[in-house]
Design a binder for these strands. Structure first.
Lengths: 142, 142
DNA sequence: TAATACATTATATTTATTCTAAACTGTTGA
DNA sequence: TCAACAGTTTAGAATAAATATAATGTATTA
């Protein structure tokens, strides 16, 4: 349980008290070998399965939002009934498979830099995201 | 009221019965001089203000979904609590102003073609959308 | 260690969206 | 023209994600 230290640090540095619920959520989100996408519902399920502590829904929502604010998580723009979040906070894009309701990363180097020529007075661009919707390719190889 | 004819045609051609509710919704959506963005709530409000007929919420949802299916409307991928729709169905992109909750079109020619090098076996790309989030630029002119 | 500010929790609430089933209407063909 | 049918509208109920509430608990501080 020594690795919990890094999360305690991380939380404290960003002004969040390191409670056992938050540390658990950090473990689930940031111990993973690979970054991943999740919905709140899925996150709750993972916590339930792998932890022996009980975390309420409200806490999960609060924590996820706090982490987004701190830049530890990213919300993925997708017009879906549930919000999707990403533990990969580097600049990258997504495929969204509408048939399987599945998100797939597209690395930054797989998309040419998106250069937007239009500007809005008094505003600056905070982020640029590309969403490519994909569907089954049922072409009979012509 | 002669221009209703074109909507009757449009609806009939796509296999939707031209009911008075649908014709009214067409008028609101497609008579406008400019394309625009809306939420269901906003659309209901516009109909209420400009029509003397009553249209139920369920009908508005049904009709908007039918129009999306027929390609007369586009849903905008945005992780918002409400869905946003666009009467501009040409290929284009969006700014989303998070401070004012406002969508702004970016014409296709203002963004270089988005070229995605990654592919997913058995899948083809159906659509590619760029969402650029913008915020106030509070730089003291340096 | 006491005081306090921040967190967690169960529960209620809100809100967008979908569902349901009854009443209604456009269309078709006799 | 009209009966029959399939598609449509509707009010209201149901669903589900997300947020608010307020009481209880816990980390921090001095």
């Amino acid at each position: 349980m020594a690795y919990a230290e890094q999360y305690i640090d991380k939380l404290r540095k960003s002004g969040l008290r390191p409670t056992k619920q938050r540390i658990k959520i950090c473990e689930v989100l940031f111990d993973a070998e690979q970054t991943f996408h999740f919905t709140i519902k899925e996150l709750v399920k993972i916590i339930e399965n792998q932890a022996n502590i009980k975390v309420s829904l409200a806490t999960v929502y609060n924590t996820v939002h706090a982490f987004i604010k701190k830049g530890y998580l990213k919300e993925i723009p997708l017009n879906a009934s549930q919000s999707y979040y990403d533990t990969n906070v580097t600049h990258h894009h997504h495929f969204f498979d509408e048939e399987e309701n599945r998100l797939i990363d597209i690395h930054q180097h797989d998309v040419d830099e998106v250069n937007i020529k239009k500007t809005i007075p008094g505003k600056k661009i905070k982020s640029v995201e590309v969403i490519a919707k994909i569907v089954s390719d049922n072409q009979s190889q012509k």
